[in-house]
């Protein structure tokens, strides 16, 4: 049944966007064009879907991805303040990537580790019970490691 195939194709959109994002880290314009051709959905419809869901980002992630949890427990525990600190330090807003491609910042609703609030996730690793002090230490450490890695070259 042709309408079935059409519906099936369309229903693959979100899983494929997820796959592309997993691989590429973001939804590039090339990807939207590609999907439009292969799924028979206009670029606009794809873009509409991609911008509707929080998960999808439309700019490339930094080499280090920082996610600040702003779930209830983290909010109560000062997640917003942690975010402010990072924002100021990196000079970018949530959803953005530093121009050198090193850091990107996201706010997330809840990472499900409320007992450890407030949490910050860096490169997939959950850092719980964060304080201004431990945050500063964490950022400094990344900075140091990056420098060492560069120096090592």
């Amino acid at each position: 049944m042709p309408d079935q195939t059409r519906a099936e194709l369309a229903s693959r959109l979100i899983p494929m966007l997820q796959e592309i994002q997993e691989e590429l880290g973001y939804i590039a314009p090339e990807a939207v064009e590609w999907l439009s051709e292969h799924l028979g959905v206009s670029k606009q419809e794809i873009f509409g879907v991609a911008t509707f869901y929080n998960f999808f980002r439309l700019n490339p992630p930094g080499r280090h991805e920082i996610h600040v949890c702003l779930g209830t427990a983290c909010h109560v525990g000062g997640g917003e303040k942690l975010l402010d600190t990072i924002r100021e330090k990196l000079g970018i807003e949530p959803g953005e990537t530093t121009p050198d491609g090193r850091f990107s910042l996201e706010r997330v609703a809840c990472v499900g580790a409320c007992a450890l609030a407030p949490t910050v996730v860096v490169d997939g690793e959950v850092h719980g019970r964060m304080t201004q002090r431990s945050l500063k230490r964490l950022l400094d450490r990344i900075e140091r490691e990056d420098r060492e890695a560069m120096g090592g070259k």
Partner: peptide, 20 residues
């Protein structure tokens, strides 16, 4: 059947726009 425009983003930020 053109799909030249769409809603982008959501909630209060929803706008009619094109891809990118």
């Amino acid at each position: 059947g053109t799909g030249a425009i769409t809603f982008v983003k959501r909630g209060h930020e929803t706008r009619v726009d094109t891809a990118f």
